[in-house]
């Protein structure tokens, strides 16, 4: 039929254009849209930042103020949902939101600032309060005091205990 066949078919087909932006569109289940951190659930463990391929989630530690900042920059996010997969607290998930355009780059940031706990030994802030609690819930009671120490102090303490034990053994 050639070109005339095609013309007739096009007319028969009619218009296929959707109405967007004047009408919303349907999105399939499982669509990977904007990632959102639930600030009430986030424990600041940093697992998401570690797996994020483009480093769109970055962690900054402010030792003076005692805050840990989780900075999610949508303008670099590749919407791969790895963060959702690894988050132990189910705090970050991908919504169906895709209308993310913004007039300034600042609007593309989502920042969660979490309070950090000071080490019982040296007094240096070392981990978020929530992360410690999260671990504490899974630890047996007798090991919990160790959590109050930063990794450095913990190592020192551990070596001390070991030396004492070794001496005793001897």
């Amino acid at each position: 039929m050639g070109r005339f066949g095609l013309i007739f078919k096009s007319i028969a087909k009619g218009r296929v254009t959707e109405k967007y932006p004047f009408a919303p569109i349907e999105l399939p289940e499982g669509f990977r849209g904007k990632p959102e951190i639930d600030p009430e659930k986030c424990i600041g463990c940093g697992a998401c930042a570690t797996v994020c391929p483009p480093s769109a989630i970055q962690i900054h530690v402010d030792e003076e103020q005692g805050y840990k900042t989780i900075d999610l920059f949508l303008g670099r996010c590749i919407f791969c949902a790895r963060c959702e997969e690894v988050c132990p607290a189910e705090a970050i998930r991908l919504t169906k939101e895709f209308e993310l355009a913004a007039a300034s780059e600042e609007d593309l940031h989502q920042v969660v600032k979490l309070k950090m706990a000071k080490c019982a030994g040296c007094g240096r802030p070392f981990d978020t309060v929530r992360h410690l609690q999260f671990i504490a819930e899974k630890l047996p009671e007798e090991q919990k005091p160790m959590l109050a120490l930063c990794p450095d102090c913990r190592a020192k303490l551990a070596s001390k205990i070991l030396t004492v034990a070794a001496r005793r053994h001897r």
Binding site: K113, C119, K144
Partner: peptide
């Protein structure tokens, strides 16, 4: 514009790990 920058700051008095536990 739907997308707005959001900053969440945790408010808490506890800041040393000993009292925390």
């Amino acid at each position: 514009q739907k997308q707005k920058s959001e900053i969440f700051v945790e408010e808490s008095d506890i800041d040393d790990a000993a009292t925390l536990f």
